[in-house]
């Protein structure tokens, strides 16, 4: 007997809606990449600058927004100043600004003092390279068009190398570019958050120690939230993930039962 596609779709939909609607959560145990990420961020001191680059498209926000929210919370709670920018992706600007503003209001942080949002500049890789020489040859204004010259940032940061850490949240290969142009060249320590699909490839850099830590997919976000002790979208999503994953396993099993019973005839 063959299960109709439509039934599979319906069951999947239900198994995702119910845990979300009821707000069920499960315990997740943080794995090594996330633990490393957490302690790397924890190593920053009050008043240090952390650069956060958003290099993803709004279409992958499902996995990456929870990371950005948790990361902003973590950095703000430790009074680390954030320079957030999206030099490699033009379309994430508005969304990123919204996220950091919301996080800042929770911690009572002020824009252009405790955090800066710089947005996009054309140039991609060459922009990255120039940041290492003179930060203000790349950015002269913030996202909201404030002159950088008048801000405290201008006094503290001359080149990207003055940031204590660079964290890239990305859905593609941007981390590799940042590793080449910023980490290797100017020695800024790096950590990354990425989608579950890309995480598989990033293990290479985690292995070699080029990345201090990694958040992989919604699971990574959930582990990070667990370590921070907050209950965010990542952890909420994990319950739905559990049901959906078990459903997928059952479907694989059903497919095989069908296959072998069909063959015996």
């Amino acid at each position: 007997m063959k299960i109709k596609r439509q039934y599979i779709y319906a069951v999947l939909f239900i198994s995702v809606v119910i845990p979300l609607a009821t707000g069920l959560t499960f315990k997740v145990r943080p794995g090594p990449p996330v633990k490393k990420f957490y302690s790397a961020v924890n190593g920053l001191n009050e008043g240090d600058y952390a650069a956060v680059t958003l290099s993803y498209d709004p279409s992958t926000k499902a996995e990456l927004n929870p990371m950005v929210i948790a990361l902003c919370g973590h950095l703000f709670s430790r009074d680390v100043k954030i320079i957030m920018m999206n030099p490699l992706n033009n379309s994430i600007g508005n969304l990123g600004y919204e996220l950091i503003t919301r996080a800042a209001s929770l911690y009572g942080k002020k824009e252009n003092d405790d955090y800066y949002f710089l947005g996009y500049v054309p140039g991609e890789k060459s922009a990255l390279q120039n940041m290492g020489e003179d930060f203000y040859s790349v950015y002269s204004k913030t996202f909201m068009k404030a002159e950088l010259k008048d801000l405290p940032l201008y006094r503290d940061i001359k080149t990207i190398a003055d940031a204590k850490m660079l964290i890239d949240i990305s859905d593609g290969n941007s981390t590799v570019d940042l590793l080449t142009y910023v980490n290797t060249k100017y020695g800024v320590p790096m950590a990354a958050g990425t989608t579950a699909i890309m995480a598989g490839e990033y293990y290479t850099y985690l292995n070699s120690g080029q990345l201090l830590g990694m958040l992989g997919g919604l699971r990574g976000a959930a582990e990070y939230e667990t370590m921070l002790g907050v209950n965010g979208k990542g952890r909420r999503g994990m319950a739905a993930q559990t049901f959906a994953h078990i459903l997928v396993l059952l479907l694989v099993l059903a497919g095989n039962i069908e296959y072998f019973s069909g063959r015996r005839k």
């Binding site: 809606v17 499902a62 996995e63 699909i197 598989g200 999503g237």
Partner: peptide, 14 residues
């Protein structure tokens, strides 16, 4: 691993 990515999308939309 991708299963997780894809379910995340559905979770977000819902």
């Amino acid at each position: 691993y991708t299963v997780m990515s894809r379910i995340s999308l559905l979770i977000d939309i819902i």
